[in-house]
Computed example of a mutant assay.
Amino acid sequence: MIQVLVADDEAMVRGGVRAILATDDGIDVVVEATDGYQAVELVRVHRPHVALLDIRMPGLDGLAAADEIAAVAPATSVIMLTTFGQEDYIAHALGGGAAGFLLKASDPRELITAVHAVADGAAFLSPTVAHRVIRRYRDVGVMATQARLRMDKLTERERDVLALLGAGHSNAEIAHTLYIVEGTVKAHVSSILDKLDVRNRVQAAILAHEAGLT
């Protein structure tokens, strides 16, 4: 059972998210928070698998809360769920270690898919957000030739893993495809992040895309 924290200062939004997630028997909303400070503390206490955070909340906002959660509970995957899709918000969230970013206008099925994906160690961006992320990284100069040069640091097997990671596959799916155990996939992913000097799977996936691996 995937345990989830939902943080949003609007009761109707929290209720709507809970109702959507309740349609999946594998997901359980174990606790709710109304601001970023409360979200961080409740994650510290309950250690949910996934924390769904709104960006604009009173006190500590969702972006700052995501940074705090990464520090105090690194095993908890963070998904930003917000009305606002500006590139600077997206970049801050993903740069801080968020594993997913969804707009509140997204298809409700994307929310369920995202929770399962990040709980399984994968990353998830709604299609609209993914387009903006790729465009932003292109704009700041992460071009295909540069990305391919960084790929030279990887072994052949690590490139295979990165290609599947970039296509959105979880560790379990990568293990099944490559006929290796999941623990080996985790080791490869850790090595890939270190060699590419990126903080998370989303940033690695962007490089994979730029290098033409996906």
Rank of each mutant, 00 (worst) to 15 (best):
A130N: 09
D88P: 03
D61W: 00
H209R: 14
D8P: 15
A51G: 06
V72F: 00
M151K: 05
Y37K: 14
V30P: 00
I55K: 03
N171S: 15
K104P: 11
T23A: 06
K153Y: 07
R44I: 09
V133Y: 00
V140T: 15
A11E: 08
L165F: 11
D139Y: 09
V129H: 08
R159H: 09
D54T: 14
L21E: 05
D61V: 04
I27E: 01
T83G: 10
L53I: 08
D107E: 12
M143Q: 12
V118E: 03
A73W: 09
R138C: 09
A71D: 10
S190G: 15
V40Q: 04
V198E: 04
V129N: 07
A119W: 01
T128F: 02
A39C: 11
L213K: 13
L111G: 01
Y89M: 08
D194N: 11
Y89F: 14
L63Y: 04
L207P: 01
A117Q: 12
T76W: 10
V115R: 02
D24N: 06
P58L: 06
V185L: 13
A105R: 11
A175Q: 06
E156S: 15
M57K: 06
R157F: 08
L213W: 05
T128W: 01
L165C: 14
D25N: 04
A114P: 00
L21H: 05
D67C: 08
D8F: 08
T145Q: 01
T214V: 14
A187P: 02
A99M: 12
R159D: 12
S191M: 04
D9W: 10
E158T: 13
R56I: 10
L149S: 09
L103F: 04
S170Y: 02
K186N: 14
I180M: 13
P48F: 05
L154I: 10
L193N: 06
R14I: 06
L207A: 01
I20D: 03
D25C: 02
I27W: 00
I55T: 04
A163Y: 04
R201N: 12
A73I: 15
A99S: 14
T184Q: 09
V115C: 01
Y37T: 14
G85F: 02
R18K: 13
D194P: 01
V45P: 00
V4A: 02
I90W: 03
P108H: 07
V30F: 03
H49G: 15
H92V: 14
T82P: 10
P58D: 08
A7N: 12
D139W: 13
I27A: 02
D24E: 04
T113P: 03
A130E: 09
G183Q: 04
A33H: 05
R18A: 03
G16N: 06
I206F: 11
T76E: 08
P74G: 08
S191T: 04
V29Y: 01
P48C: 15
V140D: 09
L162M: 14
L81E: 05
K186Q: 10
A175H: 05
G121K: 03
R132S: 10
A66E: 11
A66I: 14
V6L: 07
V6C: 07
A204V: 10
D120K: 09
R136Q: 14
R148T: 07
Y37S: 09
M1W: 00
R44M: 13
T76Q: 05
G36N: 10
G16M: 03
D67P: 01
V50P: 01
T128N: 14
G97W: 04
R132D: 00
S77N: 13
